[in-house]
């Protein structure tokens, strides 16, 4: 249950790309470097794009877990570059 360990959580299953990443990015801006964010996201475009965009901005994706309903939960650690 990685999301219980995260410092904050966000659900982006109700939006499509690129708003998915936009919401995660804005949520990360409220955290300090090294803090973690749990992200609930859909299969398909979101799971293909969001982790890659996070890495591009210098964040560290700690885990990606597939849920029973086919959605995903990923935990990202805020990187110093963003």
């Amino acid at each position: 249950m990685s999301e219980t360990k995260a410092d904050a959580a966000i659900d982006i299953t109700d939006v499509v790309c690129p708003i998915t990443f936009v919401k995660v990015k804005v949520a990360l801006e409220d955290l300090a470097d090294g803090q973690t964010l749990a992200v609930h996201l859909n299969d398909g475009e979101p799971i293909e794009n969001v982790p890659r965009s996070l890495k591009d901005e210098g964040h560290k994706v700690l885990s990606v877990d597939r849920q029973a309903d086919g959605s995903y939960t990923l935990v990202v650690e805020k990187g110093g570059r963003a």
């Binding site: 990443f21 936009v22 965009s53």
Partner: peptide
Amino acid sequence: MSSLTNEQLERYSRHIILQQVGGKG
């Protein structure tokens, strides 16, 4: 917390995605 509304996140999404802008910018 970000003061941006969902509509603003969408309207300005191409700005916010830019590393040099972001939600804070």
